[in-house]
């Protein structure tokens, strides 16, 4: 069956935080329950964030700790790829579903 959610793309609020439990070689991001429902992504599903001409694919973890924003990325290599020089903590990015999480 054709999945319409695969075509969905929209802007989300991204926060970069220290996160000892989720930082590492595989790109992982916490997402709010609202965003998960909107995108049709389950826990462990995959999302792509795009800012300008940079995209990173993350394994999504549906988490209470993303409540209040849409996406929370652990600081590290993947966050630095997307980060805004002016405000590396908080920025907007475009989100969509994808097929494979990035790793270093």
């Amino acid at each position: 069956m054709f999945e319409f959610t695969k075509l969905m793309k929209f802007d989300v609020k991204v926060v970069v935080v220290k996160d000892i439990l989720h930082e590492g070689d595989t790109a992982r991001a916490l997402i709010s329950r609202e965003l998960a429902e909107k995108l049709g992504v389950k826990d462990g599903g995959l999302i792509r964030l795009t800012r300008g001409d940079v995209s990173v694919c993350f394994e999504a973890i549906v988490s209470e700790f993303a409540e209040g924003v849409d996406v929370v990325i652990p600081s590290g290599y993947f966050a630095s790829r997307l980060a805004d020089e002016e405000n590396p903590k908080l920025f907007k990015a475009e989100v969509e579903k994808c097929d494979k999480a990035d790793s270093i």
Binding site: S75, Y77, S80, A83, D84, E85, I104
Partner: peptide
């Protein structure tokens, strides 16, 4: 490479780098 926005940190890929770090790092790998 982990802590500075890529638009800034990636510039050192074109430079000569001396890395002084006790532990393995992403910068050291990439």
């Amino acid at each position: 490479f982990r802590t500075v926005p890529w638009t800034i940190s990636s510039m050192i890929r074109e430079r000569e780098v001396i890395l002084v770090n006790s532990l393995k790092s992403v910068t050291g790998r990439l």
